[in-house]
Structure formats: structure tokens, C-alpha cells
């Protein structure tokens, strides 16, 4: 492993200033469960590693029925799923938070890290898209918000510019009669990377008979997590049932543009895009009805 400097930043401005000065030579350390492995294996390199765990704004975890949920970028998974109130409000998010790594990893791994690693197969990404999350990004020029589906530029790449620091995610409060879910297909039952994943959210009418809103996103079928707005749109106004679900699943499948690699073939991923969309919708509907 190559030598690098380590800085534990105490404020957003301090971290942002180092990132602005060092550019690509600086790497952010949040939970460290990806970056340390990447540095050890020579897949990324750094002159300076900026630890952001001590910055207050990145550790915020708060919910307000009006403003919704704020999750600091350095909040570890165990704090997210360990909060009983949040677990009840955001079961889809919990699907992801409990899947990422084992218990030991979940003590460190963060949503911000999962998003900035920007793997097309990242387990939090389709969920955050389904939940309509917005990314709060700070730089010397101030703070701005980016819709999560616009945050990714390619495998391992985000739209963050030199000097940008991801501070937090903002998720709207759940609507009545809504439900969300995340599922990934892996050949084993654990310790695996998604071959295909799906994150969905649905909102049903008061009598729970009709879809009134839906968002569907897929993982591992494109260079970035893939938001498929037309799949969600196809559900709106439709009666809740297999016909609508299967139609949405076919639209998601049509949107998928996967590659073949060691984890799965393009044909397999295309096929699984429909299966996983359907199965994830079924869970989200069940939750919306509960």
C-alpha cells in the first residue's frame, strides 16, 4: 500500500477546502469499507485521505413529518436500521441498510459511501431513487441539492466536482398508503454483489385499489443505477394487481441495458430485470396495504 496523508476534518468547510485544493489526489474516508480496500488493492490512489466522520452535519439523523428524513452522509448503517421509528417509516431503506455488508461492516459502512462509490450494483442506490432522495452537496460556493437519479456519471463516477462534499440525503416523509422495497438477486444467499436489483416505491389510493404514484429503479443493468420513470408511470391509475405489475416489470426489462460479466450474462440480467421488478413491487404493495 502506498503512503498517504490522513486528515480528520472537523467541519464541512475544512473538508471541502482540502478537496478543492487536492482534487483527484484527495479521497474521502467515511466508513472506509470501500476506500481502504481500493487503496490497498491499488484500484484507487490518494495523496491525502480526508476522514469526514467527525463532521457534525455528516452525522445528522433526524426525521420531521413535514421536512422528512435527513441522513448525514457519514451515518453508518447500524444507526439507520437501529432506529425503530425510521425502520417503521422506511422499510424499503431498511432492506438496503441491512443488506450492505455483515454486522461488523454495518457498524462502519455509510449511505454516503455507498452512493459515492457509485457501483452500478450498490445496494442503497435503487432504493434511494425509489424514495425520491435528494443529495445535499457542499462546496466553497455554498450548498446545493441534486436529485439522486442525477448523481451518477458512470461506474465508480459521480457528478461531484473538485471541492464538492456530499453532506447528507433528504428523503420526503412517506405518503399515506405507500410502501417501498428493495430486492437483489444473488446466486448465494449472502456475501455477494447484486446480479440485478430493484428498488421500488408505490402509493395506493385510500381504498388501496389503485396505484396513484410509483417509482422504479434497477441496479446492475446499466453503467449507473437506472431510474425507469416510465415503468412507475405505467402503474398510475391502474388497479393494483398482477396485470399492472407484470406490465411495469416488462417496461423495466425493456429499459435495462446490461452487460455480460463474471457475475451474470446480459440475457440473464435482462430476464431478471422483470422478475426482480415484479417481486419487489409485490412486497411494496403488501407494505402499502399493511
Amino acid at each position: 500500500m502506498q503512503a498517504f496523508s490522513y486528515v480528520s476534518a472537523k467541519s464541512v468547510s475544512e473538508a471541502s477546502a482540502i478537496l478543492a485544493q487536492e482534487g483527484d489526489n484527495a479521497k474521502v474516508l467515511s466508513g472506509g469499507t470501500d476506500i481502504i480496500v481500493q487503496l490497498r488493492e491499488g484500484r484507487r490512489s490518494a495523496h491525502v485521505v480526508v476522514d469526514v466522520k467527525a463532521i457534525p452535519e455528516l452525522n445528522e439523523l433526524s426525521y420531521d413529518a413535514a421536512a422528512g428524513l435527513t441522513i448525514g452522509a457519514a451515518v453508518p448503517m447500524h444507526r439507520i436500521y437501529g432506529d425503530a421509528k425510521l425502520a417503521a417509516l422506511y422499510p424499503g431503506l431498511m432492506d438496503s441498510a441491512t443488506l450492505i455488508g455483515g454486522t461488523a461492516i454495518q457498524g462502519r459502512a455509510t449511505l454516503g459511501g455507498n452512493v459515492c462509490t457509485a457501483s452500478p450494483a450498490g445496494d442503497a442506490l435503487p432504493t434511494l431513487i425509489a424514495l425520491n432522495a435528494r443529495c445535499v452537496v457542499a462546496s466553497a460556493n455554498g450548498t446545493r441539492e441534486i436529485a439522486i437519479e442525477n448523481f451518477f456519471a458512470g461506474p465508480g463516477r459521480t457528478v461531484l466536482q473538485k471541492g464538492d462534499l456530499l453532506v447528507a440525503f433528504k428523503l420526503p416523509a412517506p405518503q399515506p398508503n405507500s410502501g417501498a422495497a428493495y430486492l437483489r438477486f444473488i446466486p448465494r444467499n449472502e456475501m455477494d454483489i447484486a446480479v440485478v436489483s430493484a428498488g421500488v416505491s408505490v402509493q395506493l389510493s385510500a381504498d388501496k385499489s389503485t396505484f396513484i404514484a410509483a417509482r422504479i429503479a434497477l441496479g446492475a443493468v446499466a453503467p449507473t443505477p437506472l431510474f425507469v420513470p416510465e415503468a412507475g408511470a405505467a402503474l398510475i391509475g391502474q388497479p393494483v394487481g398482477a396485470v399492472a405489475v407484470n406490465a411495469a416489470a416488462e417496461i423495466a426489462k425493456a429499459a435495462a441495458r446490461p452487460i455480460s460479466d463474471m457475475r451474470g450474462s446480459a440475457e440473464q440480467r435482462k430476464h431478471l430485470s422483470a422478475v426482480m421488478t415484479k417481486r419487489t413491487l409485490e412486497i411494496a404493495i403488501e407494505r402499502a396495504r399493511a
Binding site: 446466486p187 448465494r188 444467499n189 449472502e190 455477494d192 460479466d261 463474471m262
Partner: peptide
């Protein structure tokens, strides 16, 4: 699950126990 995956040039692609999939206790 288990197999070595090579590209057409003979590079081993799955040189880790994440991608060389042995069964876990949960399987």
C-alpha cells in the same frame, strides 16, 4: 457456483472469494 472465470486473453477475472463463490453457512 464455483468456477474460474477467464476473459478471452486468459486473465482470471474472479480472483476473490466475493466473486469466486463458495457456499456460506447461509447456503
Amino acid at each position: 457456483h464455483e468456477e474460474y472465470v477467464y476473459d478471452k486473453d486468459g486473465h482470471l477475472l474472479n480472483g476473490s472469494l466475493l466473486d469466486y463463490r463458495m457456499p456460506t453457512a447461509l447456503d
